[in-house]
């Protein structure tokens, strides 16, 4: 079953099935708005806050999402599988790592 994901920051919308994580759903439809990194819960660049909607999630690195944040719907989009329509806002970003 597919659910509607809305990125509040950009207004971008896409469908995502409960078997795909939200970031994969976004990428598969060529949509943009959430930064894409490791897609495995480790790097933290796809950090989002779920504003409304239900989901299941897989383990994500505590370097990026604390237990408290996780309980408040702050998650990594690559670890979240929708079980209803979801509206989210983007927190993470690709940091400029090489400094001069």
């Amino acid at each position: 079953m597919a659910f509607q994901i809305t990125i509040e920051d950009t207004g971008e919308q896409f469908a995502c099935s409960e078997t795909k994580h939200v970031l994969a759903g976004m990428q598969k439809l060529g949509k943009k708005g959430i930064p894409v990194g490791c897609r495995s819960g480790g790097c933290g660049v796809c950090k989002v806050q779920v504003l409304s909607g239900e989901y299941t999630s897989k383990k994500m690195s505590r370097d990026h999402v604390s237990a408290e944040e996780e309980s408040e719907g702050v998650v990594l989009a690559c670890r979240v599988f929708p079980t209803s329509d979801i509206t989210l806002s983007v927190i993470g970003h690709l940091r400029k790592a090489v400094t001069r």
């Binding site: 990194g37 690709l94 940091r95 400029k96 790592a97």
Partner: peptide, 9 residues
């Protein structure tokens, strides 16, 4: 590649 330049663990 953006992620290659900025994504680490």
């Amino acid at each position: 590649v953006d992620s290659f330049m900025s994504v680490t663990t």
